[in-house]
Amino acid sequence: MSDDTQELRRLPLHDLHVSLGARMVPFAGWEMPVQYPAGVMKEHLHTRAAAGLFDVSHMGQLLLRPKGAMADLGAALERLMPVDVLGLPEGRQRYGILTSDTGGILDDLMFANRGDHVFVVVNAACVANDTAHLREELREVAEVASVESRGLLALQGPAAETALARLVPAVAALRFMDFAVADWQGEALWISRSGYTGEDGFEISVPRGIIAPFAEALLAMEEVAPIGLGARDSLRLEAGLCLYGHDIDTTTSPIEAGLSWAIQKVRRPGGARAGGFAGEQRILRELEAGPERLRVGLRPEGRAPMREGTELYTPDGTPVGRVTSGGFAPSLEAPVAMGYVAAAQAAPGTALAGEVRGKRLPVMVTDLPFRPSTYKR
């Protein structure tokens, strides 16, 4: 543990994590459970086979309340993100990307249409900057409130629906990216059918006053085990999902990052509301002509992982990129990585080499994700 432990914020379930034997580490200004006694490998595989409970209360939760019409708020948000906000129906959630004037990524987030306001979940390390950015850019059309009275849990895995439906039966009717409010012990849970593991599952915003008994009720179920940051990272890597500050940042565009799918047709060239967002010149150009580099999946030969920062080369020794996330994939029983390479080397099947401890080791460009997702469509 670092010497700045006293300065770290504590999760509302801190005492529960400690009682479960969690190893706590500093992460994004919080004291977070990185693993429990079962260990990262077993936690990862349990989530893939049954259901894992993650405490993600370090993430930022924001409410955007319009000062006038919801359409005005939607239009303002579309100036900040290259996604379709106005077309998102009430009760649905969407992946969003805050972009800079130069087309880089300020943060990736989830936003839900709650009918009379928008609920947003942002990355922990970006909370302060995102909140300031939204307040500045939306000041004429909306109030931006930080939700401090709630924690955030994620229940992920093929048994997630079975487990959560015992407490909240209505969740069985939700589809991937649906958003609903449900009652538990007289308190409102804000539930989306989404997650960060590639598995079916839910993210649940829970009032702090009931978050401990709610988590304990889930953990009492045979299917559910507590899961730490270590397995959360290996699960999202297998699913080919970006981690802000590593795979995406202010220097990467959504197109380079392979996030073109998040830009709906209506915001693309020829669409009814094409452009009009921060960084549109670069992003629209790359949509049509292609970027100079691309995020790709990488499968190293052998058992040695290629970690973040590993330099990548063509077989003749020409530098072509670097790894941004890498580790061992328990579901595949093999190392995997993601990184950026020159567009000419981005095709699946391209043979490259990664420099590990002074040696150039073979690595193959491959499709993402490494393991197919199992969302409930």
Rank of each mutant, 00 (worst) to 15 (best):
T5P: 05
L8R: 00
R9G: 08
D15R: 07
D15A: 09
W30T: 01
P33K: 02
Y36V: 11
V40R: 14
K42H: 11
A51I: 01
L53C: 07
D55A: 09
L64E: 11
R65E: 15
P66A: 10
A75P: 08
L77P: 00
L77S: 00
D84I: 04
L88D: 15
G96T: 15
L98K: 04
S100N: 10
L109Y: 07
N113W: 12
G115L: 10
D116C: 08
F119S: 14
N123I: 07
N129L: 09
D130M: 11
L134E: 00
R139W: 10
A142D: 03
A145W: 10
E148M: 11
G151C: 02
G157Y: 03
G157C: 03
A163R: 03
A165N: 02
D178W: 07
V181K: 12
E187L: 08
W190Q: 14
S192L: 08
R193C: 01
T197F: 10
D200F: 05
E203R: 12
L218R: 05
E223D: 09
G228V: 05
G228M: 05
L229I: 06
L235D: 06
E238M: 09
E238K: 08
G240T: 01
T250Q: 13
S253D: 04
G258D: 01
R268Q: 06
R273Y: 12
A274N: 09
G279Y: 03
L287Q: 08
E288I: 15
G290H: 13
P291G: 07
R295P: 02
V296T: 00
E301R: 15
R307L: 01
G309F: 04
T314K: 02
P315K: 13
P319K: 11
P319N: 10
V320F: 05
V323C: 00
T324V: 04
G326R: 00
S331W: 12
A334R: 11
A337E: 01
R360D: 10
L361R: 11
M364A: 13
L368F: 01
P369E: 05
